[in-house]
Amino acid sequence: MVRFKNRWLLIEFIPLTVDGNATYLPSEGLNGKYIWSALKESVLANFGDTGWGAVGTSLTVRVARDHHRIAWGAVTLLKKVQGKTYIPNVIHVSGTIKHAQLAAIAHNREAVAKLRALSNLPAMYQSKYDDYLETSMKEIDELQD
Rank of each mutant, 00 (worst) to 15 (best):
His67Leu: 09
Val55Lys: 02
Thr17Arg: 05
Lys40Ala: 00
Val81Pro: 07
Asp66Thr: 07
Gly20Leu: 13
Arg3His: 00
Asn31Leu: 02
Ala123Phe: 05
Asp131Arg: 04
Leu30Met: 09
Asn120Gln: 11
Thr50Asp: 09
Thr57Trp: 14
Ala38Lys: 09
Ala103His: 04
Ala117Thr: 01
Ile11Gln: 06
Asn89Phe: 09
Phe13His: 02
Phe4Asp: 13
Leu10Cys: 07
Lys138Cys: 09
Glu41Asn: 07
Val93Phe: 12
Gly51Gln: 03
Gln101Asp: 10
Leu44Met: 06
Val61Ser: 12
Phe13Ile: 14
Ala74Cys: 00
Gly53Thr: 12
Glu139Cys: 11
Ala113His: 09
Asp141Met: 12
Thr85Asn: 06
Tyr125Pro: 02
Gly29Asn: 04
Ile35Gln: 00
Asp19Leu: 08
Ile97Phe: 02
Asn120Tyr: 14
His68Leu: 12
Glu12Tyr: 07
Thr60Asp: 12
Asp141Cys: 10
Lys80Val: 11
Leu121Trp: 05
Leu121Asp: 03
Glu134Leu: 06
Pro15Phe: 08
Met124Leu: 09
Lys33Gly: 12
Leu44Phe: 07
Thr135Glu: 13
Ala71Arg: 01
Asp145Lys: 01
Ser119Leu: 13
Thr60Leu: 14
Lys114Ile: 14
Gly83Asn: 02
Gly32Gln: 03
His67Thr: 10
Ala38Gly: 00
Phe47Asn: 11
Thr23Gln: 12
Gly53Tyr: 02
Ala104Phe: 10
Thr23Lys: 05
